[in-house]
């Protein structure tokens, strides 16, 4: 699990122009992903976790731009690659699974055609081999009777099956990294468990790395090796998932965990327990991102200075002024 990193992201910054202003959707995001590792990026909606993932592959939507940072993959900085080079990485080396399988698949093409299109772009194989590969990946994701049903259209499948197809699509070229962006959020709870199990199994069998984006810390615990917590575009805490769950260091993580009764997964309830809401991303500036809502903020510092990373355990980092001053006792505000 601790081989050399396959992906290392440093100082990633993504901005969107809004009127005359610039909205910083991701600020100074850095992390490494080891081979075969699963990193969970956790945060509520608007925390910049999805846009960070899109930014890795140059897929930031609309007017948004990656303005700084580097994304090192197989010795290249993806952000500096010419478009053609980046395009060849997409889907072949790094593949994505999106949130809503009903809109992420093209309604007018059979699933066979959609998988084959991906193979057509990246693999110079004879037709027979492509066909075999399609059957193989559909089989691997537990798609029933692939030889016959690969001719079906997305609307003929259930939500769970569609998400299996989306995973098959991601696996088609045997990528080194799979980015799952809220891949289970829209599914029924029972289906969600099946898909997670599937993903974990595939990851171990096929030895790819996973970036698992979710707003559900409990879910991250089931699948991830390490977790990075993001808030308002900033990573605030990163560490091994068990360590972070057991000894959360950032007041925001503490809040997330404290408001989550174990075993129960009612999200609205969980986040409601942290008073306030995500700040306006245009006005954070140099402050600590959580300062406005933080029950243990250091007055005069948190709203002026951005905290630096502090070590708080093995492989465990936190960016918090209070922690820097008072240690874990200071940030455990809700016990």
């Amino acid at each position: 699990m601790t081989s050399a990193p396959v992906l290392s992201v440093r100082g990633l910054r993504i901005e969107f122009p809004v009127g005359g202003d610039r909205l910083v959707a991701a600020r100074d995001v850095s992390f490494e992903l080891a081979g075969g590792e699963c990193l969970a990026i956790v945060g509520e909606s608007g925390s910049g976790k999805s846009v960070t993932c899109l930014g890795l592959l140059g897929l930031v939507p609309g007017q948004g731009r990656v303005v700084a940072g580097e994304v090192i993959f197989e010795g290249d900085d993806l952000l500096k690659l010419p478009f053609e080079g980046l395009r060849q990485v997409r889907g072949e080396k790094i593949a994505m699974i999106f949130q809503d399988p009903s809109s992420a698949l093209n309604p007018l093409f059979t699933i066979e055609r959609q998988i084959r299109d991906v193979l057509d772009v990246h693999k110079d194989w004879p037709a027979k081999r492509k066909r075999d590969r399609i059957l193989e990946v559909l089989g691997a994701v537990g798609f029933p009777d692939p030889a016959r049903r690969m001719k079906s259209y997305p609307h003929e499948l259930s939500g769970g099956l569609r998400q299996r197809v989306a995973i098959a699509l991601a696996l088609a070229c045997a990528p080194r990294i799979v980015i799952a962006d809220e891949a289970t959020t829209n599914l029924d709870v029972s289906v969600q468990a099946q898909i997670i199990e599937l993903l974990v199994g595939l990851k171990d069998d096929l030895e790819f790395s996973v970036i698992f984006v979710t707003h559900d810390l409990a879910l991250a615990q089931h699948i991830a090796d390490r977790v990075m917590v993001m808030y308002a575009g900033h990573p605030v805490e990163v560490g091994p998932v068990a360590e972070v769950m057991a000894n959360p260091a950032h007041p925001y993580t503490v809040g997330l965990l404290g408001s989550a009764p174990t075993g129960e997964s009612h999200r609205a309830h969980r986040l409601a327990a942290i008073p306030g809401s995500i700040p306006d991303l245009r006005t954070i500036g140099a402050a600590a991102p959580f300062a406005g809502r933080c029950p243990v903020r250091v007055e005069g510092i948190c709203d002026r200075v951005k905290p630096a990373w502090t070590s708080c355990g093995a492989d465990h980092l936190v960016a918090c002024h209070r922690y820097e001053r008072d240690g874990r006792e200071g940030t455990t505000w809700n016990r």
Partner: peptide
Amino acid sequence: GEDYVRTARSFGLRERR
């Protein structure tokens, strides 16, 4: 602007296609 266009893009399909 549809999701499946983003999907296609994320899988490296050519813009023209």
